[in-house]
Design a protein around this nucleic acid. Sequence first.
DNA 1: ATCGGTGTTCGACGGTGGTCGAACACCGAT
DNA 2: ATCGGTGTTCGACCACCGTCGAACACCGAT
Lengths: 115, 115
Amino acid sequence: MTARARRTVGLRHTDPSDVSLQEALEALADPVRRSILRVLAGEPDFARACGAFDLPVSKATASHHFSVLRASGLLEQIDQGPRRLNRLRRAEFDARFPGLLALVLTEDEPTKTAS
Amino acid sequence: MTARARRTVGLRHTDPSDVSLQEALEALADPVRRSILRVLAGEPDFARACGAFDLPVSKATASHHFSVLRASGLLEQIDQGPRRLNRLRRAEFDARFPGLLALVLTEDEPTKTAS
DNA sequence: ATCGGTGTTCGACGGTGGTCGAACACCGAT
DNA sequence: ATCGGTGTTCGACCACCGTCGAACACCGAT
């Protein structure tokens, strides 16, 4: 923990070692959630807030997805002022499910086909 | 292919290299399907027919699950007389999604908690 | 104290997927 | 040709999940 003003709030953070394969697969089976993880993988920890993801869903839905990722041990979040910063729990999750996160991060982003 | 009487029928077999991560994760996100894969992993290829799995679902539902597994590149099936024999496409699928199948096969079977 | 910005929560809605029984198709053997 | 066994297909049902707008809570700054 740095000297910066960061509050680790009472958020329901599930430890990856407590996550079942069922939960992990369900969490990763959503394309929006996987895209969140890929963005986080390309940046320093806690560099991006929830609102800064340019997701194709509403605020409410995005919030739901972050909640799922947190509950499945994939995300750690801390509050800094009004925004909530995110960190990909890369090492911990990979220790629990070796190779799984790597598959998600190396996935070639499927481009939207115009209807 | 051995000299035994086996017919490789015109079943919709998807090659693992044509399977997206999305499809793979959706296929593996069901516990019944994962249990099928684990059983197959513990036996020789084409040793077990669809009806010999002791699944907690009806015949119709089981058939649906086998169809999904076949369509996601996880299963190969051949017809032998009236029954349909199954093979886990272990190497091919692992080449497409390294480590993913291993996670499923090493999963500790979650026991049903009595309600 | 008020305001703009950020994120969550609350119903509600709709689509999808797992489930089933029943009917059907296929095979081998009698 | 009929029968039992195996597996698929067809509707239908239902629960769950992703989705949304609206309302709310929180923070920092004005």
